[in-house]
Amino acid sequence: MDWTLLGQQLANGVVNGMNYVLISTGLTLVFGVLRVINFAHGEFYMLGAFLTYFAMSALGIGYLPAVLLATVAVGALGILVNRLFFWPLRKEHEFTVLLSSLGLALLVTHGAELGFGHDPKYLNSPFTDDILEVGTIVLTQQRVLIFAAAVLVLAATYAAIRWTTFGRMMRATAQNPEGAALTGVDIRFVHTITFVLACGLAGLAGALVGPVAMIFPTVGSWAVLKGFIVVILGGLGSVPGALVGGLTLGVVEALAGGYVSLGFMEAIGYAIIILVLLWRPQGLFGSVAR
C-alpha cells in the first residue's frame, strides 16, 4: 500500500468534496425553506465564475476582490430571480415551479453564450499554479483556498441558521410556512434572503473553483448535477446532509477514481446514491415526516 498516494487522493477528495458542499448548500436551502427544486442553481455557479473573470479583465481588479464582487453581485441577482421567477409562482403546483426554474436555466445559459461567447475561458487566479507541499501531499494554493473559504463560509451560514432570529425565521418557514406567517415571519423576505444566500454561495463556488478548470457558459449543468447528487445523498433540505453528502461524494470519487478507474468515477457516484436510497429513502439526513 502506497500511503503517500492514499493521502494525496484523500486530500484531493476532501477538497473536491468541499467544493460540492459549497454548490449544494444553496440548492438544499432553497428546497428546504421554499420547497423549490431549482434547476437554475448551476447557472449562478457559472455566473460567479464569469463575473469574476470580467471583473478582473474589465475593471482590472485583483482576483480576490473580484471573487468578493462576483459573490455579492450573484447574490444580489437572487433578489431579482426570486421576484421574477419564483415568488409569483409560490402558490402554483411544484411542477410549474420546476419548469420555471428549467426555463430560467436555459435562458441564462443561452444568454451567457450570446453575451460571453461560446469559447471556454481561463479564470486566472494567482494561486492556481503555486504548489503547497504539506508533508508528502501536494496541493495547489487555490485548492487550499477553496477548502478554507468553504469551511469559513459554511460555518458562518450554519451558525446563522442555528442561532440568529433570521435563521429561526428560515427554519420556521421550512417546517410550517403557514404557522410561520401567523407567527409574524415575513415570508417574502425569507424567500428573498434565502435566494440571495443560495445564489451567493453558488456564485462563490464558481468564483473559487473556476480557476481549477476552464469556464464556459454550459459549466452550470455540471455544477447542478453534482449538486443534486449531493443533495439527494444527504437528504433534500438538510444543511448537515449537504456537508456529509458532499464530502462523501468527493472522497468516494477520489478513491474510486484513484484505485479503480476514473472512468467509473461518475458511475460510482450514482451507485452510492442508489445504495443510500435503498437503505434510507429520505437520504442520510432527511427526516421522514415532512
Binding site: 427554519r171 420556521a172 410550517n176 410561520a180 407567527t183 409574524g184
Partner: peptide, 20 residues
Amino acid sequence: GRLLFPDMTVMEHLDLGAHR
C-alpha cells in the same frame, strides 16, 4: 392544528413569537 415547528424548541418558538 397549532401549526408549530416540530424541529424547533419551545424557547425558539417563544423567541420567534416575540419578534413582531
